[in-house]
Nucleic acid binder design. Structure first.
Lengths: 179, 179
DNA sequence: CTAAAAATATAATGACCGTTCTATACATAA
DNA sequence: TTATGTATAGAACGGTCATTATATTTTTAG
């Protein structure tokens, strides 16, 4: 991937996440990324295509974080997953779930690529929890706690979030053991 | 309150919630509310003042729903609260927490009235749980579950959300009994 | 060195944005 | 009826938006 293209995606991700998709103009993105406008249009068909690429890159990063955390897990996988999720929130500054926010801002059209990608991303998270051994009910509970922690981080300190999240995770009654 | 003003607030609430604050223009709001543009500016100083009034009205409705649910509670207050929250989500179409969304779209300025109101609203929810008898840790857990349910409703069916949410609520170990 | 590819700056396009101005119509109450 | 406040339509304002066009420069590869 071109360095310019990567710069665009990374700066766009920060701007979109911090201010919203409709609120950030292309001019601001190319300015912060030090790239000409025509270079952006050379790499992306449209603003929405850029948004989609930003989300896909972020989605891949999130899942690779979860996967590596469970692979390198020394103690229980569920605690490693929870810590990985908290780490992800800590790294990105308390502005909620970017995927849900994208879905919300583009919910006028349910056939929209962005709308569909977010649904797919969320379905993948649920499926991932089931793949590594949790039953359906447990996976749903986990997703609820993960989403809750992300939302909570928008109004509370990360220490409060981590404490509450971990406490909730530990108090889950798990029917099956992983591995 | 003037009927026109009320129409504006109600239609603005729906449009903002369904499409986002930056995505919805004043023209669209006055069209759906059947109101002239100058009438809007007669009742609200600016678009952001309208947004603030929309949030305040919604916030009051939410809290009055929670309060009446716990007052008229026949069984346990926590289950009544949970059901009231689910009812609120059901009534508003699966687009997440409007307060968090407002904070996200106006997070460029932490001194912004909208930003501050949302913080206040969320602090009030936590305080409310403590006022009716839950300790701090329990109140935090409740908020996490409430936020989780709201977020979950954006990608799952309400039946799945209700089942998972209620299951999580019931499995909470409560240190103290209310009343 | 040269040819192809990528990135640049600038400007035009047409549409929409929030806000303000002007001037007219309608309502209610004294 | 007259006066006052409210609602109306329509246009203008300056600005930003995403996108496209044109033309020039820089970088890369053979």
């Amino acid at each position: 991937m071109s360095k310019k293209k990567q710069d665009l995606i990374e700066h766009a991700e920060q701007l979109f996440y911090n201010h919203g998709f409709h609120a950030v103009g292309l001019k601001r993105i190319i300015k912060e990324a030090n790239v000409a406008l025509m270079t952006l249009y050379n790499h992306f068909d449209s603003k929405e295509a850029l948004i989609l690429d930003v989300l896909k890159k972020r989605g891949e990063q999130y899942f690779s974080l979860l996967k590596s955390s469970v692979e390198n897990s020394k103690s229980s996988p569920i605690l490693s997953l929870a810590e990985a999720h908290i780490d992800f929130i800590r790294k990105h500054n308390k502005n909620g779930c970017m995927f849900l926010r994208a879905k919300e801002e583009f919910s006028f059209d349910e056939d929209h690529e962005i709308f569909q990608y977010v649904n797919e991303h969320k379905r993948s998270l649920l499926a991932f929890f089931e793949e590594i051994g949790f039953n359906h009910s447990e996976a749903l509970q986990l997703v609820l706690l993960f989403e809750g922690a992300t939302a909570l981080s928008e109004t509370l300190t990360m220490d409060e979030v981590e404490m509450t999240f971990m406490h909730s995770i530990k108090s889950m009654k798990l029917q099956m053991r992983v591995e």
